[in-house]
């Protein structure tokens, strides 16, 4: 008999379902995210990742099911929870017409960061972009912009961080730097991270555990290496492709291990 899991649950979804015009984008989706854990949410386009992320951020209300963060129901405690969380996405931007330091200062004040100028300088240093401080945000490259968004995401020392495809459209060098910084900060501060990506390298390097979604349902869950070992695939990318093409195929055990 295995020992009970005593790790602190930071985020929990129970039987989360979200329907759009009768179609289930999420179908009884349940999971737990623990303190200090990086959980990858994977799936093809339309698998339900974005819907899940939006429900978890309180941007979309679930049709049914329960969501709690830090032990509190999400909807009733949205502000308290958001104060301890943060978010960064490749698909949102900080106002392009402001300077980088101006954008970061505004968000530092929103989150009530003590000594915001010092904090901003530290984060810019950490992400190796102190030279961008006085640049216009809208004129940054994709890689620079991603790192500035991450600065914003780390401003309030979040205990829960949601990263939506943080390395999308980045070159391999910058993507590698971003992954390393995320992992470093996450380990130092024991942050719980929910991470979505289409880049399997990201997932293998950053995530402790992975959930594969297909048509709104969880079809695989485990560590990246366990998932590969349990499938008839050689690597996570093959697993991804098989699930994207036919989610059920992976329910069959790997031929080698079945013998």
């Amino acid at each position: 008999m295995s020992a009970p899991d005593t790790r602190e649950v930071i985020l929990e979804a129970r039987e989360l379902t979200r329907e759009f015009d009768g179609v289930k984008a999420l179908d009884r989706f349940s999971f737990k995210l623990h303190r200090g854990e990086v959980l990858g949410l994977l799936g093809a386009n339309g698998a339900g990742k974005t819907t899940a992320m939006n429900c978890l951020l309180g941007l979309t209300l679930p049709t049914s099911g329960e969501l709690t963060a830090f032990g509190l129901p999400l909807q009733a405690n949205r502000i308290k929870i958001l104060q301890r969380s943060n978010f960064s996405s490749a698909y949102t931007a900080l106002p392009g017409n402001l300077l980088v330091w101006q954008n970061l200062l505004v968000f530092a004040r929103i989150y009530g960061v003590p000594n915001p100028k010092k904090k901003i300088a530290e984060l810019l240093e950490l992400l190796e972009i102190p030279h961008l401080q006085k640049r216009v945000t809208g004129q940054l490259s994709a890689g620079e912009s991603t790192r500035v968004n991450l600065c914003k995401a780390f401003l309030n020392d979040p205990e829960l961080l949601m990263l939506d495809e943080p390395t999308a459209s980045l070159d391999p060098d910058i993507a590698d730097k971003v992954r390393k910084v995320v992992r470093k900060v996450q380990r130092e501060r024991s942050i719980a991270i929910l991470y979505t990506s289409h880049n399997m390298r990201d997932i293998e390097e950053v995530c402790d555990r992975v959930i594969f979604l297909h048509k709104g349902k969880i079809v695989r869950e485990g560590t990246p290496s366990d998932i590969v070992a349990q499938s008839s695939s050689d690597n996570l990318e093959d697993v991804f492709i098989k699930i994207a093409r036919d989610g059920e195929i992976l329910d069959e055990p790997k031929k080698d291990s079945a013998v």
């Binding site: 309180g58 502000i79 104060q83 978010f87 106002p95 929103i110 914003k152």
Partner: peptide, 13 residues
């Protein structure tokens, strides 16, 4: 400026 999500996921009432 595609900043609306940043505001709605910040602790802003």
């Amino acid at each position: 400026t595609r900043n609306l999500l940043n505001i709605f996921v910040a602790p802003v009432r």
